[in-house]
Nucleic acid binder design. Sequence first.
DNA 1: GTGAAAGCGCTAACAG
DNA 2: CTGTTAGCGCTTTCAC
Lengths: 326, 326
Amino acid sequence: MDRRRPPVTLEHVARVAGVSRATASRVLTGSGPSSAEARGRVQAVAERLGYVADPVARALVHGRGTRLVVAATAAAPDALECAYLSRVVATTAAVCADQGLGVALQWLPLGGPQAALDGLARDRSVAGVVLVDTTRLVLDSVPRELHGRVVSIGAGSRDVPLVDVDTEAAATAIVGHLVATGRRRIALIAGPTWLPCSERPVAAYRAAVAAAGLPARVVAGGFDTASGRAGAREALRRWPDTDAVYGICDEVALGALQVLRAAGRQVPGDVAVAGFDDIPAAESSGLTTATHPVERIADAAARSALGRVADGPTLFASDLVVRESA
Amino acid sequence: MDRRRPPVTLEHVARVAGVSRATASRVLTGSGPSSAEARGRVQAVAERLGYVADPVARALVHGRGTRLVVAATAAAPDALECAYLSRVVATTAAVCADQGLGVALQWLPLGGPQAALDGLARDRSVAGVVLVDTTRLVLDSVPRELHGRVVSIGAGSRDVPLVDVDTEAAATAIVGHLVATGRRRIALIAGPTWLPCSERPVAAYRAAVAAAGLPARVVAGGFDTASGRAGAREALRRWPDTDAVYGICDEVALGALQVLRAAGRQVPGDVAVAGFDDIPAAESSGLTTATHPVERIADAAARSALGRVADGPTLFASDLVVRESA
DNA sequence: GTGAAAGCGCTAACAG
DNA sequence: CTGTTAGCGCTTTCAC
């Protein structure tokens, strides 16, 4: 009844090639010595039989695990259904495909990630972990057993390498552009306060406006359109003379755009608007923004979680994209 | 040097509980008989030691595989970076997370999917396959060995069960709405011709307009905004009196919307516009559409690819969402 | 250079 | 009800 699995095993290859399993293994993995003759025969037979080594058996023997886990911190599990995270998962899945591995998506409760992280450390099928939307609590809760095969997109620590886009440079470039085009009262709608990764651009914004001799105007926000609308309203209320609104991400900027227009402000005439991420909607809305190479980041993160983890943080460049809004 | 993996194995649990590995296994898997006492002791020890069975070893012995492969047909591998596919992968990854499995994303070349499919059939780490953007060629190329653990989102066959949204009902509902609101010259911008799944809504559209005694007006299209723009231009050229444009998906409808407005047509005054999918941009653009429960579909597809596959096609309902555009 | 044998961690026959 | 015995498919000492 279980004729599902093709019977082409190393044993077969070895037998047909007239060598031992050990020799066949050496040839096929390229580890250890082997005579030219044996090599030729084994490879030919393997080719002809369409032999593919079972990644499962290999993983067992190496104790390497068979999956990469993308562990995302969120208040509730349904928050995992977001476009950003989906792109990260899809990219890591593509990386895994070549290596006989798979990726799983794991929710890390915002309030108490410890249990989930311990579970991952204990689970022998876990080859590596990519942390997303990482909080400081998560960083502090990463079990020692995970060291060396865990990376984080968003925020790193001494033990957990960081892979991300250079949000600092992006923020500096955006504020620089706003200043260069004559804006002087630039408000920033910030990200969720529980996310360390939203601190870097805020700090960069502060530094940039300070360097230009301008006041810092920061309102709390989030990563969604609703936050952008609320943030814009608050900014307008507190500083009616605002001449530029910089959203921590495009969703926020787009929300702000709606509110500003509804309030009768001309964009970019009265007020400039800029975001960050360069999502598809940014293009159709003519939003000035900066790129966020999510696929490249996720690819790098996956590779380093699986192989040797790079030492320092790996930051990808972000390019300014000037459109109509600023 | 490899102290990475915690040494908590079934052997340990058994030893500490004072039973054999077999007994411990029976208790923990709930298969086979076991005395209340043994059960109690083993469970207590397992709990205390934080034992988690190694999914890899289990997969080896069961020959079950450790990953679910999402295999998407496309002309080129970079076409896999799309929002729809990402949602499918992320959802399946969440399903897999519970079962100690992972998901991988595999490209199926549009022209010749055979080799890739054979590879999947041969790869013993493959627990199941979810086909996406399935063509007829793919359907015909599915190796027999995959039967029973392969499902398709988009188009099925005798051997490959289908899981999808009920695009037929959606198309009927949309055309019904357009007719009910007085439209009489309804053009449809269709999807890619190489995708069988874009045939159902087209057929439903034809049936619906025919039933209302109206002419069928179909132009070729695709799934992106550019196709929508091109399609709208063509429709306008061929039938200048068009009073409704129905895009095969929201992206297309949004592209059509741009062109219609640029051509000076009032929406919905002169011409109504409707799409399908209910993507985020549809809401902010006030586009009338119908829902596409991608996550629910992907969840069902993943489960049936892993467990016993359901017999008939599983179609999820789509709800009409009436907004300003129609 | 090669084969025999041991074993990765687990489950499943088979006796007891 | 339980322990013993075999493997699942592969890699890897260790003699030859």
